[in-house]
Simulated scan of single mutants.
Amino acid sequence: MATFSKTGFKTINYNSFRPRYPPSFYEILSNYSGNKIGNSLDIGCGTGIATYDLLNISDNVEGVDLSPSMIKTCNDLIKERCESLGISDFKRISFNVGDLDNLDTLTEGKYDLIVGAQCLHWSKNFDQLFKKIYKLLKPNGVFAYWYYVDPIVTNASGKNDLQTLEKAKQIYFKYMYDDENLVGPHWEQPGRSIIKNYYKEIDDKIPSMFKDVKINNYEVDLKNFKKPTEGEDLVLVKENINIDQLFNYVSTYSGLHNYLEANPESKVIEDYANELKSETGWTEDTSIDLVWNTGYTLVRK
């Protein structure tokens, strides 16, 4: 999480290139909650990618994040994002600097819904976090957390040639994880290992005081590819996009940011792009479909 808090981290790029969570997922949250959602809290809210859309299912929403630059981006976007949602009362949403491992300034028993989007793997003490979340929730309140990791190319210009798609996946993993001279060693741990392991370490820590536990994981299988299912999975898909959008997304990785700080002369994204195009025959005109591995967990107080 420290990487996203650095002053040199480009939060506008993060906000622009990260995928948005679809309306179908907020329907999952709303249906699971079952009751009217008055107050919601988004911990580790980043640039508010999830926070604003919570206004569609909640009367009031608060976001907290450790990074002052992320919070500044959130506050700068309030008017624009609220108006895009058809919301005129900007006071329904607020953002403040706060650490997901130190939520003591928040009001206990206030929230109908607390969410952690793409952030729980940064916590240093899951037992403590679950206990604090429990205290912050109203009776029957819901804690929902979710993640996504590693976009997989499932189609290129209408072709799903398995050999080429597997080659593209192999090159991605080489640059992001497998080659010790590239990005791999620069991920902050254990966070990245937790998210790559589909949050199992976190789910195993869910205390018995929570009930109605629902865990869903979706993993891309190129050999027997099936799209994620709306209403069941967290569906993160971008179809018919320019290949450069893949490189723009990868450019938001904290591991890449750390690598470039240590190797400022490196052109690792350019090298990745050139090798991918060379080995697959893809060009700037190639349109691709990206599907992310995802998962979510819902629990009730």
Rank of each mutant, 00 (worst) to 15 (best):
F143I: 10
D65H: 03
K132S: 11
D53Y: 07
N56F: 12
S123F: 00
T47L: 01
A144E: 06
D101C: 04
L85D: 13
G44S: 05
M70Y: 01
V61W: 00
S33E: 11
L55G: 00
I43C: 02
Q118H: 13
C74D: 00
T154A: 11
S40A: 14
D104E: 13
L103Q: 00
K36T: 14
L41G: 01
G63N: 01
P151L: 10
K110E: 10
V97H: 07
S123K: 01
Y147I: 05
L106I: 08
D53H: 09
K138D: 08
G86W: 14
K91T: 14
G86L: 14
D42E: 11
K36F: 13
L129I: 08
T51P: 02
N96V: 07
D42L: 07
L113T: 07
F143D: 02
D99A: 05
K91I: 11
Y148P: 04
N56Y: 12
D65K: 02
N60T: 12
I49S: 09
Y148E: 10
I37H: 05
K91L: 09
K72A: 14
K79N: 10
Y145P: 01
C74K: 00
L54H: 02
S40E: 02
P68G: 10
S30P: 04
D99E: 09
I133K: 00
V153N: 06
E62G: 00
L113D: 03
F143N: 02
D65N: 08
P139A: 12
N96M: 11
I78R: 05
